[in-house]
């Protein structure tokens, strides 16, 4: 992750770069980010945090995290991405009830009287969830008292401008400028 920090105070710039990196890795989001631009102006105060994700946050279906086969009336799935195991189990329980879902081993699940295609299309994580988590991590980094915020979200770029005063057109313009700067020529 490439982090560029600009601001009016050297100590704050370095401290916030470390804080941003620490919070992102603590929340497991550092690997999802390609780059970040942070603008810190405590005098106004105006803080802009803009991040570009490695991939566009998209929804995930069961088929993206398992291998799936049908044997008679039973559908057998083998989880290949364990990160989604709780969501997969929870979604199957919700759709078919606990009686019909049999978790045979840590990764193997059997579902009675089910249709392979229907199971494959069950959504286990939405792109919105992923964005919400990134936003949560950004909000945790931005100074707590700077409550007036303006968000811009476009594809895999998220920008937040925060101030203590009214969100003026100048604040919005600055946020858009940084947003466009991080986006560059990339297809987001």
């Amino acid at each position: 992750m490439d982090v560029i920090v600009t601001g009016t105070e050297n100590y704050g710039n370095e401290a916030y770069k470390k804080l941003f990196e620490d919070v992102m890795s603590e929340m497991g989001k550092a690997v999802s980010l390609e780059k970040a631009i942070i603008v810190l102006d405590p005098e106004q105060p105006l803080f802009i945090f803009s991040v570009m994700l490695r991939n566009r946050p998209e929804s995930k279906k069961i088929a993206d995290a398992v291998s799936i086969r049908t044997e008679g009336s039973e559908v057998h799935i083998t989880i290949s991405d364990e990160n989604y195991a709780p969501e997969i189990l929870s979604a199957l329980w919700k759709a078919y009830g606990r009686d019909r879902v049999d978790q045979q081993t840590r990764f193997d699940i059997k579902i009675d009287n089910a249709d392979e295609e229907t199971i494959a299309n069950i959504e286990i994580a939405s792109g919105e969830d992923s964005k919400r988590e990134i936003l949560g991590a950004l909000w945790r980094t931005i100074p707590e008292g700077i409550k007036a915020r303006h968000n811009i979200s476009e594809g895999r770029v998220i920008t937040i401008a925060a101030t203590e005063e009214i969100v003026t057109q100048h604040v919005k313009d600055e946020a858009l400028r940084i947003h466009n700067e991080i986006k560059g020529d990339a297809d987001v």
């Binding site: 105070e9 100590y11 704050g12 401290a15 804080l19 810190l40 405590p42 005098e43 100074p143």
Partner: peptide, 13 residues
């Protein structure tokens, strides 16, 4: 008996 005030990273703040 005494208080420690813990403030942040910006001098102006």
């Amino acid at each position: 008996d005494a208080a420690i005030f813990m403030l942040g990273n910006f001098k102006s703040c």
